[in-house]
Design a protein around this nucleic acid. Structure first.
Lengths: 210, 210
DNA sequence: GGGAAGATGTTTACACTGTCCACAATCGCA
DNA sequence: TGCGATTGTGGACAGTGTAAACATCTTCCC
């Protein structure tokens, strides 16, 4: 990347997207703090100020990178769902699905800690959680994936409808916490074995306690 | 604070501690990124490089501030334990205690989001979780407080001994995740009522699913 | 007591960051 | 063809972390 004179024309083409892609690489390698505007423009082969034609400030760039990272998380979760065992019993199937959603989330955190941290480095709110900018290739955001899995649990009569409302918060909190603690919190340094074990038990806890 | 010529002597007295205290205030107001070395020295009435006599670099200062913040979290948790209802039944008492530990943790996150984020802004590992630098006035770190509460659950025959090992990870993950999501994650903007509700349900989940 | 050695603060300097402003090249359309 | 809007460039500035050399204070030993 970053071939110095690679740009034939004065115009870049799609600088905005290029900056987000470069930002994603920076974030992957070093987390949110590594998303430095000047570095991104440098790698995009453009002057620092060019970025300001597409983003209000560094924070806006980080926001865009963060959204893209969440989309990648969604991809990882969908992959895990696709790989989940398909039980005959609809109830078990629904439970396996929620499990896969959670496992995918934690796997993403462990495989791409920089992106995971970046995804949550910028304040956000619930209203934006269905925004297409945060969606994966399947068109759904992580939040929507959890929601759908919970709906399936209700449909399969595993989760009483009375407990459905805002159940996302609980499931999400559990996996988010483990992900955070494991990648750069006090739980880093655990062996893979220990993390796998903790993940399984955590998902049991959610399954049992939701 | 930061009286310009307030220092009578050439020596400061206890600059290291002063920097940590100032850092704590900066973190309280603006999270980890607000802990800027030059600003801290400025408020301590000292030249920027004076800090380097006490900390290897900015990160070492942040580390110290982060530890102090964790100590404050421990204080908050102990306060919640002290305020917990004391049931006659030892089993209920033990369960109330774990609940208080979790509730204190989340309350701290909500009351001091800047400090909470700072406490987890620097990578750490499990071996350090009992370090005295992270302890509160009661002498125990948050990790030790959870551990003690879990031990009490085993002693009261609520939690089978076979599930005791590393149970900290599960309980901690749940409350940590909710804390994070609520203060600057996608769950911010929820009404206090909603957060209280989510907290109660989350603690139920842990109680039921551990 | 008198100095030397070490600890602690200061000054100067540098590279790097985000961002503002004025200017230039290019594109799209009348 | 020309002209306005978009997009990119160059130069500048304040603020940051940190290195190196220098100054001052404390301590402690002869």
């Amino acid at each position: 990347m970053a071939i110095p004179g690679a740009r034939a024309s004065y115009r870049h083409g799609d600088l905005r997207d290029a900056l987000v892609q470069v930002g994603l690489e920076l974030a992957r390698a070093g987390g949110p703090d590594a998303v430095v505007l000047r570095q991104a423009t440098r790698e995009a082969g453009v002057s620092p100020n060019a970025a300001y034609r597409h983003f209000a400030d560094r924070n806006a760039l980080l926001q865009a990178v963060s959204d893209a990272a969440l989309g990648l998380a969604a991809d990882r979760m969908e992959a895990e769902i696709a790989a989940a065992p398909v039980a005959d019993d609809p109830a078990t199937r629904a439970r396996e699905r929620l499990r896969a959603v959670g496992a995918g989330y934690i796997h993403f955190a462990r495989e791409e800690p920089g992106l995971f941290r970046t995804a949550f480095s910028v304040p956000d709110n619930l209203q934006n959680q269905a925004s297409a900018t945060k969606a994966g290739r399947g068109g759904q955001t992580p939040f929507e994936l959890v929601g759908a899995a919970l709906d399936a649990l209700v449909a399969a009569d595993v989760l009483p409808r009375s407990r459905r409302q805002n159940a996302e918060f609980l499931a999400w909190s559990a996996v988010h916490g483990l992900g955070m603690l494991v990648i750069d919190g006090p739980l880093r340094g655990l062996t893979d074995q220990m993390v796998d074990d903790a993940t399984a038990r955590l998902l049991d806890m959610v399954d049992r306690g939701l």
